[in-house]
Design a protein around this nucleic acid. Structure first.
Length: 566
RNA sequence: CGGGGUGUAGCGCAGCCAGGUAGCGCACCUGAAUGGGGUUCAGGUGGUCGGAGGUUCGAAUCCUCUCACCCCGACCA
């Protein structure tokens, strides 16, 4: 490809809208262009890389026994009502009406469609196991798209769905997919860590995420260096510091004039947050919930939501709190009636806590659970934090951020039951198909790859997914020797089946080199009068500083060798 | 949805406070010189000033409404 003909120009200045590296580089390299919030056009360079990523994914999916299919983006809303997940996707589901006023959704994912499809096709255990996948555009009306391709509303995703007769079969396929994913990310030049995850709106039991560790990541990862355990902060468990455990004393009122927050109360009473209980108020599907948790620990809303089995969870407003007769700032679970109380396990982790007095300017000392109040539910709803102890080995946990590039779920049978996907087993009994689903965000993956593989000059493509392998860069094109040699080398390499980007522009040396660095093509070939004098051309890896002189006659062969070996 | 910010040429920005013929840099076009890391000079093309309404002799500028985009939060496979 001649650079002068390539659609998509490089830009020197960073568009103001981009503040993550991958977004900036993709815009500057002329790879993508935003149409509206979270919706992008992919220009040739980006599309070439995307296709390469897709081909790697395809290859690994096929090797694992997957069969590729294509499913509708337009999906009748009834399908979502049937699975019950329309509600959990909520506002994120793009909805539209056809001319007959029938409601449709733009598919945010394809579990419903495929379960319906497979349910109609599969009849016998002999038809299972079955692995089907698709690489397609999906739509989600995200509240806030961000980070360029990291979170968008229209995006290409690979989803594989596994169908088994039983949990053992699912386990096998689950492990098979994890192995395939490791291959995929490694072939893409992206180091990932596998962490435990919450399964969210998708539902299901076991769930793991593949995270690219990166500052631009939206997810917080809590991990243990000593034993290797790692989990999404939404899911992570941890050992909290020990609270006071002296023998329980009688409750005692204490005046705390105007001291409402945990810090204020602690400073005033000269105690530690670990020895306090705090109250947080939520509305769970319009039911008021009083959450009680130790003062030094924060509520993990994902855990809380899962525990309450609710669709919508939000903090209660001041009015809603007041309507329950609760005095914010001095709230107490003691003596509360007709309110659902959820306590974190941490409330039972010590004795003689300071809690609210449910009257203005009053707190109560020596509060003990369950002596002084009862909770409807006691569970782990605590947010794990860096510095907490690992539940496996007690070492101090660390935190980092990551981009979720892949996510695998054991769905089990809840979808197949709802959607009516059953098979007949060897005994002639009808049973629900056991499902798993395995996703990779392709565009986001490309962004993560760029984020990991760049320097201050630009992208450094891993060879496998680079849009082109070789950048032929003639200097001083007016020199006919240069022009002829560059041109012939370009054609020769192309004839050898090598993907070449040929910078045929009459730009200055600096411009060309800087664009070459920005675009990040792995191998740069410089053709110049200086090296031609010596009968050579220069070959340089994007990832390395030094160039190598190669005799002109051997150039093409040598380049081919370099590309093969690397 | 709450908070903050920004909309002026393909990109980055100034002009707005104090109303008076729309500017600068990059990019693009023409020409010349130069040229191994965004070189220089000269000339040139390109703008519904996000949109609508209002005030005014006159609005990028003041007022009202509105839309879009970005950031933080909420939310989110």
């Amino acid at each position: 490809m001649r650079l002068s003909q390539l659609f998509g120009k490089t830009q020197r200045e960073i568009p103001a809208e981009a503040d993550t590296i991958s977004h900036q580089l993709m815009l500057r390299a002329g790879m993508i262009r935003q149409l509206t919030a979270g919706v992008y056009s992919y220009l040739p360079l980006a599309l070439r890389s995307l296709h390469k990523i897709e081909d790697i994914i395809r290859d690994e999916m096929n090797k694992a026994g997957g069969q590729e299919i294509c499913m509708p983006v337009l999906q009748p809303i009834e399908l979502w009502e049937k699975s019950g997940r329309g509600a959990s996707f909520g506002q994120s589901l793009f909805r539209l009406f056809d001319r007959k006023e029938r409601e449709l959704a733009l598919g945010p994912t394809h579990e419903e469609v495929i379960t319906d499809l497979v349910g109609r096709s599969v009849q016998s255990y002999r038809d299972l196991p079955l692995l089907l996948y698709q690489i397609q555009t999906k739509f989600r009306d995200e509240p806030r798209p961000r980070g360029g391709l990291v979170r968008v509303r229209e995006f290409v995703m690979k989803d594989l769905y596994s169908f088994d007769t039983d949990a053992e079969g699912l386990d096998i396929n689950y492990q098979k997919m994890i192995a395939a994913y490791k291959n995929i990310f490694s072939r893409c030049g992206l180091p990932v860590i596998i962490i435990e995850a919450d399964s969210g709106a998708i539902g299901g039991k076991d769930s793991n995420e593949f995270m690219a560790v990166s500052e631009m990541g939206e997810d917080e990862i809590i991990y243990c260096e000593s034993c290797g355990k790692a989990a999404n902060a939404e899911k992570a468990q941890s050992l909290k510091v020990k609270a006071d455990n002296s023998s329980p004393l009688p409750m005692e009122e204490v005046a705390t004039p105007g001291y409402k927050t945990i810090e204020e109360v602690c400073r005033f009473l000269k105690i530690n947050p670990v020895n306090t209980l705090k109250a947080v108020f939520y509305m769970a599907d319009n039911e008021f919930v009083f959450v009680c948790i130790r003062g030094d620990v924060d509520v993990n809303e994902v855990k809380l939501k899962n525990m309450l089995h609710c669709v919508d969870l939000r903090m209660a407003t001041e009015q809603e709190v007041a309507a329950e007769g609760i005095i914010a700032g001095f709230a107490s679970p003691i003596g509360l009636k007709n309110v659902k109380i959820v306590a974190d396990e941490s409330v039972a982790s010590g004795t003689n806590f300071v809690a609210g007095g449910n009257k203005n300017d009053l707190h109560i000392k020596n509060v003990n659970y369950p002596r002084d109040f009862k909770a409807d539910i006691v569970a782990d709803i605590a947010l794990a934090a860096a510095g907490d102890g690992c539940t496996e080995c007690s070492a101090k946990l660390l935190a980092t951020r990551g981009v979720e590039v892949g996510h695998v779920f054991k769905l089990g049978t809840f979808l197949s039951e709802k959607m009516g996907a059953f098979y007949i087993d060897a005994n002639g009994e009808s049973k629900p198909i056991v499902m798993g689903c395995y996703g990779i965000g392709v565009g986001r993956l490309m962004a993560a790859i760029i984020d990991i593989n760049h320097d201050d000059k630009g992208i450094i493509w891993p060879q496998n997914i680079a849009p082109y392998q070789v950048y032929v860069c003639p200097l001083f094109l007016e020199d006919t020797r240069v022009a002829e040699k560059a041109e012939s080398l370009y054609k020769e390499l192309e004839n050898m089946g090598i993907e070449v980007l040929y910078d045929d522009r009459s730009e200055s040396t600096g411009v060309k080199f800087n664009d070459a660095d920005l675009l990040g093509i792995p191998l740069r070939i410089t053709v110049s009068p200086r090296s031609l004098e010596k009968g050579c051309i220069e070959v340089k890896w994007r990832s390395e500083k030094k160039a190598e002189l190669v005799p002109v006659d051997e150039a093409a062969k040598k380049i081919q060798e370099m590309l093969t070996v690397k």
